[in-house]
Computed example of a mutant assay.
Amino acid sequence: MLTRSGAWTAAAAVGLVALGTWTDYPELVTLGLAAAGALLVAAAWLVATPRLTVVREVRPRRVFEGGAAQGTLTVTNVGRRGSPPLLVSETIGGHRTTVAVPALTAGHSCTVSYPLPVARRGRYVIPPVALGHSDPLRLLHRGRACGGELVVHVYPRVHLLATITAGGPQDTDGQTTGNAPLGGAAFHSLREYTPGDDWRRIHWGATARTGTVMTRHVVVPDEPRQLVVLDTSSASYHGSLFEDAVRVAASFCVAAERSGLPLQLRTTGAAERESSGTALEFLSTVEPDSADRGLAALSGLVRDVVSDTQGVALVIVTGRLDADATQLLMLLRHRFLSVSLAQLVSPDSALPPRPRGVLAVAAPSSERFAAGWNRLVLR
């Protein structure tokens, strides 16, 4: 394809030939033919495309906001003749990065590294790398796509948050149920020995009393679960505070994982994820929604998570909280081991009265929230 210089050269060739013919001025015709000849030479230069292989790597493929990702290209000349200098282009998040690769003799390779623009959270799809070269006069350019697509996840920035231990101990003597998974160390009951049971778990006292070989039935104890609900209604936030709310939700997810608590993340838009890894991946793409009902949908969101045998610690991350939402939290409080409220609000916002029995912290940024939360929990 024509470069900008090539387009001007082509226009000059046509114009000079036409003007020289019309005015019977052979010098102008000669200049026009010279320009056309330069284009033909450039086209001939590009006919013999060098045989190159390109290996691309992006590391890391998952990075937190403020982190750095780097692309690495290894270009190898597998042909019999040398290749000219090349320009390699990467496009990520609408930003184009162009990397220069020097001329390569036959059989040689070159590795170049370059930073990738991944400052904002998101899921970035990197298209195949564009490998191109041009003639010495930069009149024509020829390129081709190499490799496949790559995906880079930029997770929200995470702050260190203290966890609340109101959910109860997570030890081997925790509460158990008969349908709990086997293989733990918590004693649940005695039962008859079956072939394959560990003989070290035989209860000799019960065996002597009943005349039947009895063994200890041990299971994994029930543990309190952490349920994080992120309000994704755009009406709940001012300006960029939704980004801070996403960071706070991510911080709670990581804190639960670090403490060994089973985790579930839900949004008021009905999206759901379990475990810290998938939660962070989801939070890298979540966006506010003007059609989202916000905390008005909370009752339906939590209806299925409370059981008689397993407690749930609820964390709600939102922006502005109206009187109806405050009343709803007070009605739901008795159904959970604990209820925590994280509010991301502008400094001049008027806050409604704190719901009774709810641990609430309001702040204008995720950093200020983390500091206030830790100060409240650890005091």
Rank of each mutant, 00 (worst) to 15 (best):
Gly32Asp: 02
Gly79Leu: 11
Leu280Lys: 11
Val358Gly: 04
Leu344Cys: 05
Val99Tyr: 04
Val54Asp: 04
Thr165Trp: 14
Val154His: 04
Val377Tyr: 06
Leu86Phe: 11
Thr210Gly: 08
Phe336Ile: 05
Val305Trp: 11
Ala250Trp: 05
Asp348Gly: 06
Pro136Ala: 02
Gly269Cys: 07
Val361Asp: 01
Ala371Pro: 01
Thr268His: 10
Val345Phe: 03
Phe336His: 11
Gly67Pro: 06
Ala35Thr: 00
His141Glu: 01
Arg138Asn: 01
Gly269Phe: 07
Thr3Asn: 00
Gly269Asn: 12
Arg123Thr: 13
Arg368Leu: 13
Ser113Lys: 06
Leu19Thr: 15
Val99Gly: 05
Val306Thr: 14
Thr23Lys: 10
Glu243Ile: 05
Ser340Met: 10
Ile202Asn: 10
Thr30His: 02
Ala44Val: 12
Arg61Cys: 04
Pro181Asn: 14
Thr194His: 15
Ala250Leu: 06
Ala245Leu: 06
Ala38Ser: 04
Leu328Phe: 04
Glu367Trp: 07
Trp45Thr: 01
Val58Gln: 05
Ser276Arg: 14
Thr49Gly: 02
Ala235Tyr: 05
Glu257Ile: 03
Ala38Val: 00
Met214Asp: 06
Gln343Phe: 04
Ala271Leu: 12
Leu190Tyr: 10
Gly319Pro: 11
Ala68Gln: 15
Gly143Asp: 03
Pro221Thr: 09
Thr177Pro: 08
Thr23Asn: 07
His95Asp: 08
Asp304Ile: 04
Asp348Val: 08
Glu223Arg: 15
Gly239Trp: 09
Ile316Asp: 03
Ser275Cys: 09
Glu27Tyr: 09
Met1Trp: 01
Ala250Ser: 06
Thr232Asn: 03
Leu46Glu: 00
Val246Phe: 06
Trp8Ser: 02
Asp173Gly: 13
Met214Trp: 03
Thr207Gln: 08
Pro102Phe: 10
Pro127Met: 00
